[in-house]
Computed example of a mutant assay.
Amino acid sequence: MNKINVLLLIAVVASAFVLVTLHYENRVLYTQLAKEQQTAYQLNEEHAVLILEQAKFTNHHVIQEAAAKQTLHVPSLAETKMIEKE
């Protein structure tokens, strides 16, 4: 009966060790997951900002306003020169 008790004690200690190890690994992985989710959230925010900026710069009114600030205009026929290919 004594040998069975020793074997059971070894089995309980081994299973406790495995349980603690798995619990620690679970914590490490959960922390890593939380960091990755935070990074994904920040990247999604940055992507949304970039899409808004892109939409702003493709707005025709903004382009016309920038051209007016630089005194750009559509060239007239007198300002246009045709270059013919030889």
Rank of each mutant, 00 (worst) to 15 (best):
F57N: 15
Q37L: 11
H23P: 01
V49E: 07
I51E: 12
L29V: 02
T80L: 13
H61D: 09
Q42K: 15
A14I: 11
A48S: 07
L43F: 07
E45I: 04
V12P: 01
L9V: 03
H61Q: 11
E46M: 11
Q32V: 04
V20R: 04
Q54K: 14
T80C: 06
V20Q: 03
V28R: 04
L19D: 03
H60N: 09
R27D: 02
E86V: 03
K3Y: 05
N44I: 08
K81V: 12
V28S: 05
H60A: 07
N59H: 15
L9P: 00
E79L: 05
E25A: 04
F57C: 06
N5S: 03
N44K: 15
I83Y: 08
Q32K: 12
V49A: 11
Q38V: 09
E53W: 05
A66V: 05
L72H: 09
K85H: 02
E79H: 04
L8P: 00
A48G: 03
L50D: 08
E86P: 08
L52N: 14
E46D: 11
L29K: 12
V13K: 03
F57H: 12
N26F: 09
H73W: 14
E86G: 08
V28E: 05
V18G: 01
V62M: 08
L22C: 04
Q38S: 13
L29M: 07
Y24F: 08
L50V: 05
I10Y: 02
A34L: 15
T71E: 12
E25L: 07
H73Q: 12
L8N: 08
Q42F: 15
V62H: 11
E45L: 12
V18P: 00
I10M: 05
K69T: 00
L9A: 05
A55P: 00
E25P: 00
V13A: 10
L29D: 07
A67V: 07
N2A: 11
E25Q: 11
E36S: 12
Q54I: 06
L33K: 15
S15V: 14
H60F: 13
H61T: 13
L29C: 02
K35C: 07
E86Q: 02
M82F: 08
K3G: 00
E53N: 15
A68V: 05
I63T: 06
